[in-house]
């Protein structure tokens, strides 16, 4: 441990802050979270309400700052309320994927043998199916509902996490400290969760933050194709609705498109920052 730092937490923050791009990313994500929290205060009316003339351009009317879509719904209200959908899907899909991925990766590396073989073949099976087709299949079978979409995205994005976890576990499972635990008679579960996992987790966390980004993109793609949940405002759904008007009112697609781009980019920057902060090889690099 570096003796100079006051505490591990501060040390982590200092190293994260060393990456300026990551700070920008963090700022964007915090703003998105802020919008999600205060959406109901900013736009108290349901966001899918028709409030004005259709196809009103951004900044043409101060009441509808970002304009209105082809039905006359306020784009700003839909963007702000859409942050909830976006974050909800991103976070829960990422949690689902991390849970599945870590479970599969950890058990296959720790126990090895036939379990490893089976789990890795299953992982490869999931990896070979094109993600978007797999998601569309699940959603069209279960029905277009936000929780089904979250589940579907989680189900296709866990494979890289499983592979990464497995690789980390493989390097750790025969180290002395693990063997010491074994000789002390610790249970497998306790070794996995209490000893190996904390050491294997940093790269997995970085990857999970990237899964949030791809989950957001998947949700947008599904909504764009018209399979999203029609009862809630979503960025992808807004783009899909505006598609036929791309020649005349392109802002309907552009505004949510920019929102998605900014959010996904920000998550990637945060991922880089986390990598810098959590990677022990970079720890003493100044």
């Amino acid at each position: 441990m570096a003796a100079a730092s006051a505490s591990p937490g501060l040390d982590f923050l200092r190293r994260f802050a060393r990456n300026k791009a990551a700070l920008v990313g963090l700022f964007v994500i915090l703003s998105v979270i802020g919008l999600a929290i205060f959406a109901s205060q900013l736009y108290p009316r349901p966001p899918l309400r028709i409030v004005g003339r259709p196809e009103l351009w951004p900044f043409a009317n101060p009441r509808h700052l970002l304009g209105t879509d082809s039905l006359g719904r306020d784009i700003a209200a839909m963007i702000v309320h859409g942050t909830r959908t976006t974050l909800l899907i991103g976070i829960f899909a990422s949690l689902t994927a991390t849970l599945i991925g870590v479970t599969v990766g950890a058990s296959s590396a720790y126990f090895g043998g036939w379990l490893d073989e089976t789990l890795m073949r299953v992982t490869e099976l999931f990896q070979t199916v094109p993600n978007i087709i797999f998601i569309l299949t699940i959603v069209s079978i279960l029905g277009p509902d936000i929780w089904h979409i979250t589940l579907a995205v989680g189900l296709v994005t866990w494979t890289p996490i499983a592979r990464l976890t497995r690789a980390e576990f493989l390097t750790l499972r025969d180290r002395e400290f693990v063997q010491a635990c074994r000789s002390m008679g610790m249970s497998d579960l306790r070794i996995i969760l209490g000893e190996i996992l904390p050491n294997a987790l940093p790269p997995v966390i970085v990857l999970s933050s990237l899964v949030i980004a791809s989950a957001i993109l998947f949700e947008s793609a599904i909504s764009f194709l018209g399979l999203g949940d029609p009862n809630i405002a979503s960025w992808g759904g807004l783009i899909g609705d505006g598609r036929t008007l791309i020649r005349s009112s392109w802002y309907i697609c552009a505004v949510p498109g920019l929102a998605i781009m900014a959010t996904v980019l920000a998550l990637n920057l945060i991922g880089d920052g986390l990598n810098d902060a959590l990677n022990p090889n970079l720890r003493d690099r100044s």
Partner: peptide, 10 residues
């Protein structure tokens, strides 16, 4: 029909 559904809901 997509827009129609959303409008009738409202």
């Amino acid at each position: 029909n997509v827009k129609l559904g959303q409008y009738v809901k409202q």
